[in-house]
Design a protein around this nucleic acid. Structure first.
Lengths: 190, 190
DNA sequence: CAAAACGGAATGAACATTCATTCCTAAAAT
DNA sequence: ATTTTAGGAATGAATGTTCATTCCGTTTTG
């Protein structure tokens, strides 16, 4: 059944995500991935042609879910500032709920294991975000700095925020995180 | 001669840094490290008891140089805001000059390969930076957010800035980077 | 019952580490 | 001044292990 097929493929992806985020790609044997997914080693190769193929599929898989969550409650009708806060808060919430995804993305966002095509595909999913930045620029809300710099600053500090919440020694409540997101806006706003 | 000893050990560390930053720890065989350092494989084991020992030594090595460069031209007599800009700019400059160090640090700052003791030792080197943040807080210059959050935001966006300069598609001149550092201050300042 | 899916043993390549041997240098002997 | 000797440094072939991938007998599906 197609259902079972999807089940096994998804099981492999989930097992791989957990192991790779903890131990890295080279530190996660196919045998271990199979064991964690409760299937035989050989079965993995029915769904992925190689270990590299597996990690590229996983990259797309994670990025897809991230993009979906990021764009939750996002609407072009809302004003730019509010939209910006919603997007950042969505990213924060998603990674707080899914730490393995964060570790995986951080480790492989710039890895040579991820092919250019895969990376390209991942980028396309975030087009609305770029669009929002353009809108902000048009409305003169942003500092006069290269767009890439503004978005990179925003994303970089957002990730820092999540890491602090997940791995830091301090406890952060929702309000404090919101204040952090506001601080990020301060960095890029005119 | 002692000189030769130091030369070989340094050669191993340098070779390992280059390879590990590009291919990761598990992706960098001792044989390849030896080859790149122009020595025999066995020789590595005269200086490092294991591959894990090597990466921990390398971590200290890199962190030491980073701390030195970060604290260049830093003086407690200068005012807080100026000191802050100097420190961040030093970090940016160091990593721009040493991309392998950046990639290495990003990959292993939170890796289980780095022992708690090693991490601890690395942290101690940045005591003056924490001190500066305390001073800023005492002078009421910072937002009323947890210290860890402010420093994390600052460091995270600084690293983003460097990555943009190193791997981004846009060209960034010194003035633009300075403007970026200013933006980071905007994020944390009251 | 034929075809597809599965599992895990088998294979061969790659690897970290060891260790018997060689190399180098500098002091001792002549 | 030349040769001998000694000991630490360096080496890389050999070892045992781990791993990705393949292969093929078994089970499940339709």
């Amino acid at each position: 059944m197609k259902e079972k097929v999807q089940n096994k493929k998804a099981a492999v992806l989930q097992a791989a995500l957990g192991l790779i985020s903890e131990q890295g790609f080279q530190g996660s044997p196919m045998s271990q991935i199979a064991q964690r997914a409760n299937i035989g080693v050989g079965t993995i190769y029915r769904y992925f042609s190689s270990k590299e193929d597996l990690i590229n599929d996983l990259y797309i898989d994670v990025k897809t879910r991230l993009a979906q969550h990021t764009l939750r409650n996002y609407s072009v009708s809302r004003d730019v500032h509010a939209s910006f806060l919603v997007l950042l808060r969505n990213i924060v919430d998603y990674f707080i709920e899914n730490p393995a995804e964060l570790l995986f993305m951080e480790q492989y966002a710039n890895s040579p294991l991820i092919t250019a095509a895969t990376r390209e595909e991942g980028l396309r999913m975030f087009a609305p975000v770029n669009h929002l930045f353009e809108r902000a620029k048009d409305e003169n809300l942003l500092k006069e700095l290269p767009m890439e710099m503004l978005s990179t600053l925003a994303y970089g500090s957002t990730i820092s925020l999540v890491k602090l919440k997940l791995f830091g020694k301090v406890k952060l409540d929702g309000a404090t995180i919101d204040a952090g997101v506001d601080a990020i806006w301060d960095a890029i706003k005119r």
